[in-house]
Amino acid sequence: MVAYDCYLFRMKRLAKRLLSILLTIIVVSLIVFLLQEYALGDSASYILSEDAGGSAADIFRASVSADGSLMERYISFLQAFLSGRWGNTVSGQDIAGTIADRAGATLSLAVFSVLLSVLISVPVSLVSVKPGKFPDRAASFLSVIILSLPSFLTSFFLIILFSFLLGILPPAGYVHPSVSVPGWIRTLMLPALSLSLLYAAMIIRIFRKALRENIDKPYARALYAAGASYPEVLMKGALKPSLPVLYTLIASSFSSAVAGAAVTETVFAFPGLGSLMVTAALSRDAVLSGTLVMLAALAVSSTYMILELVLFMADPRSRREA
């Protein structure tokens, strides 16, 4: 009976969660629509020449102008989105195709950056756990510097180092993995490094704090008393209990990379969803912005939902939060 109750409870929670995701994406896209509505200017001003006139221009203006009330347009947008017919951008390109292309790039970037950040931050955290020693000071110092500088600056320093001085990595562009896998990795390298340094610095800060807290706890001390070596204590007593924190940090880094990497993408001329968002805003393309924001919200919410699932399964004790 207990198992069944648990199951029911979990299903209920899942349903609630899915409902909240649905509502979130609707609210978010509605907000974006509202903002577009009141934003100055329209798509026609962005696309046409200042003084373009004549019937072609008029037809275009009519085709992008807002007819029907805001709610009518929003409802038809929602219907189109949910049925998969995403329509065209104001400049006439197929939204679904464009997003598909760019989503691949953004996802590669997100996964790669998070991977790199974990590869950098976890070993560094483990090595520098002991406060006051050299590894701690060095790691703290470097991560503070990285966190104090705006991300586009670190991006530029990386470009200057690897492309300008050393000439081994390209500063811009994106090569699709189906064309060339080495090319794909090389074009991903600098933008991913840029993002991962940032995430790594944040992870080091918070993860290391968790490690230090856990290593002082009774469980770790007991291991010591039982004769375990320092590395063993570190792994079993500190690392394992700190994993939930790490997972949370991974989730937040990943969602940040998917939804918020516009600046990095612009610096590296990386054709991802972030720079597409910027274009959508500048060209006052309500449908494109709405679609993108819904997808971003979906991605972020799903990431957190998966996080909760992972945390739930990893630590049965958290089930007490009923």
Partner: peptide, 18 residues
């Protein structure tokens, strides 16, 4: 024709042969 809005990236891309 590639689109590289950032000046520095474009210039360095040129200098590195891209």
């Amino acid at each position: 024709y590639y689109f590289v809005p950032d000046e520095v990236t474009r210039t360095i891309g040129f200098e590195s042969g891209l």
